[in-house]
């Protein structure tokens, strides 16, 4: 297993280099211009000078190499210097955003807390709801619980978050006035009152995300459980006199987890990617909002950096999923 992880990690690094190159070329090829959002009253010559000062006049390959060096060498060194106080970073060029003209990674770090709080919690809550619903739905297939669960999860998935978010705001913020419609990212939880405030402002976005995620995961959980409940080994286990609880929660569940683990592993990087629409609706301004505003403003260094960070996470979690397959089903071997 260790051998496998080491080998895969090596391949992953190569994959990552390749992915960052493909993304960079894609962004270089995509139409768009960082000066597009400036007022039309700014003349074209000035816009040309701005593009020049952003380094857009250079060959894309040169820009890629510069970015690559900054991302994989300068930024880690800078982080080490910040953490340890050692002089590892020197005074080299960091990755600078086109929009704010400030280091990209500083803004990314600034955005991580609210993203993890809201999107991460939404995912965790969604998963925690989804697993029992999926299990019970499958065990009692076509019971009223199953029918209701199916109905809610399908509606939850088919109604997009831009609508559920606004609906919740209209009901709970406008009419009832229970929760704020705008997320305050500057709130520091240092007292009970502020904790209540924080909890209140998280209720709506977390519920929207939890509903959406739960819908998806519970469907896979249910389907996979159903597959396994009819297998011969279940009959054998029951025949051997194992308790129903042990049969379902140990044997069936373990064998049903493979697709669910895959789905969850695919979902975790998306937590870091933020939930673009939900963040916009509730003004959470996390990583998702950062990415979409950067794309709209053609802030290439920002988009590139964020997508490569996501790529790292995607590769990492898919690797974790592969390892977990082996744990869940020892017959799966990779060597």
């Amino acid at each position: 297993m260790l051998n496998f992880i080491i080998r895969r990690s090596g391949i992953s690094v190569l994959t990552l280099f390749f992915i960052s190159f493909v993304i960079f070329m894609l962004l270089a090829l995509a139409p768009g211009d960082p000066t597009a959002s400036l007022p039309l009253s700014i003349p074209a010559e000035v816009k040309a000078q701005i593009r020049e000062s952003l380094g857009l006049g250079q060959n894309p390959l040169v820009r890629f190499v510069k970015w690559f060096y900054a991302f994989f060498w300068v930024e880690p060194m800078y982080t080490i210097e910040q953490l340890t106080g050692l002089n590892t970073y020197g005074d080299q060029q960091r990755i600078i955003s086109f929009q704010s003209r400030s280091p990209v990674m500083d803004i990314v770090w600034q955005r991580i807390p609210q993203t993890l709080w809201v999107v991460g919690l939404g995912y965790v809550v969604g998963t925690l709801i989804a697993l029992p619903i999926g299990i019970i739905s499958a065990y009692r297939q076509y019971s009223w619980f199953d029918q209701l669960g199916t109905f809610i999860s399908m509606v939850g998935f088919s109604v997009p978050t831009f609508f559920t978010g606004v609906l919740l705001i209209v009901i709970f913020s406008v009419n009832l006035g229970w929760f704020p419609s705008i997320y305050d990212t500057t709130l520091v939880v240092d007292s009970w009152a502020n904790f209540v405030k924080q909890a209140k402002q998280m209720v709506l976005p977390v519920s929207v995300l939890a509903l959406y995620n739960a819908a998806q995961i519970s469907r896979f959980m249910r389907a996979s459980m159903l597959d396994n409940l009819n297998q011969d080994y279940v009959r054998t286990a029951r025949a051997k006199g194992l308790g129903e609880k042990a049969v379902v929660l140990v044997h069936v569940l373990r064998n049903s987890m493979i697709p669910v683990v895959t789905v969850i592993a695919l979902g975790v990087p998306q937590v870091f990617g933020g939930a673009i629409i939900t963040e916009q609706v509730f003004k959470v301004n996390g990583l998702g909002q950062l990415l979409i505003t950067a794309i709209q403003a053609n802030d290439i260094p920002m988009v590139q950096t964020l997508t490569v960070i996501f790529a790292v996470l995607i590769i990492l979690f898919n690797l974790i999923a592969d390892v977990l397959y082996g744990v869940l089903d020892p017959r799966i071997r990779y060597d």
Partner: peptide, 16 residues
């Protein structure tokens, strides 16, 4: 290849 496609940013890809 799947990892690559998962990582590609959707909007720029579509624009291209």
């Amino acid at each position: 290849l799947t990892d690559l496609f998962l990582a590609l940013p959707l909007l720029p890809l579509l624009l291209v």
